[in-house]
């Protein structure tokens, strides 16, 4: 396939970026999207130009590093995948592909297509954990009975890889799907209930401080999430938050 790429180039966080056009030839439909970018970068390096910087790590849909907005959608036009799992067979010969970084005030661009998603880390640090004494007398988690329904829901929420596609897809750049998944995975389990009240208050407070927008329930986040995190988690977080606020 021969393709035209329109890629966001930005030297650093303080420099204004712009879209730059590239032509790429002989792209195999079996390549992953990131392999296609690897080929482009090899060509750019051979020509003495700066390669396009983009995030990637595991390349098997687990780490959540690859963060591209492709043709107006996070991780491109396919569903339930990350960019490393997107294959060039989703495109046609002669297509023009627009590649941008995830856009959010809370995800500032570091360089080209790489954004700083440490705002997610700070939300997680605000309460996305349980306090357990691990000094030799830890109780096996399996010793506490958990009903299957709750365990499954908690596991589903815990599959969030924190990639930020929810924020990128949301017209309001809201991080409520991410935050609610992290709140839910603990709120549903007895180990997490101990700190549930303070957890939801602190995580929502941090989410607001980071400058994410408000959820307006468009559902775009759920559709674009590579792990299929459900909107049910946002409802649960809202309910937990209201209860916690009235308690506090």
């Amino acid at each position: 396939m021969n393709l035209k790429l329109k890629i966001w180039r930005q030297k650093d966080a303080n420099t204004k970026g712009k879209m730059v056009d590239y032509q790429i030839s002989d792209v195999s439909p079996d390549m992953s999207f990131l392999e296609m970018l690897d080929v482009l970068n090899e060509e750019l390096i051979e020509k003495g130009e700066d390669p396009v910087e983009f995030d990637h790590d595991c390349r098997e849909g687990i780490c959540g590093s690859c963060s591209l907005q492709i043709n107006g959608e996070p991780h491109g036009p396919d569903r339930g995948i990350t960019t490393c799992q997107l294959h060039m067979r989703m495109f046609k010969d002669g297509d023009t592909i627009t590649i941008e970084p995830f856009r959010a005030k809370a995800f500032p661009v570091i360089r080209d297509l790489i954004v700083d998603r440490s705002s997610f880390d700070r939300i997680q640090q605000a309460g996305g954990y349980i306090s357990v004494n691990t000094s030799g007398n830890t109780i096996d988690a399996n010793a506490i009975p958990v009903n299957k329904h709750d365990a499954d829901k908690a596991f589903d929420a815990a599959t969030c890889i924190g990639c930020g596609a929810c924020v990128a897809a949301c017209k309001n750049a809201s991080a409520m799907l991410f935050t609610s998944a992290k709140v839910s995975q603990f709120a549903l389990l007895p180990q997490g209930r101990v700190e549930a009240t303070q957890r939801v208050l602190n995580m929502v407070k941090q989410m607001d401080l980071e400058g994410f927008g408000n959820c307006t329930n468009t559902g775009a986040c759920e559709i674009e999430c590579p792990k299929g995190i459900s909107l049910e988690n946002i409802a649960r977080m809202n309910s937990e938050y209201l209860s916690a606020s009235l308690e506090g």
Binding site: K105, A169, K171, T216
Partner: peptide, 26 residues
């Protein structure tokens, strides 16, 4: 507030791929 949260706008934003017109244009 929601518009401010986006910061720099996308060159291409394909909202119709994942949400209804009614939900995006309240």
């Amino acid at each position: 507030k929601n518009r401010q949260a986006r910061g720099v706008k996308y060159v291409q934003f394909n909202g119709s791929a994942n949400s209804s017109w009614a939900s995006r244009n309240m």
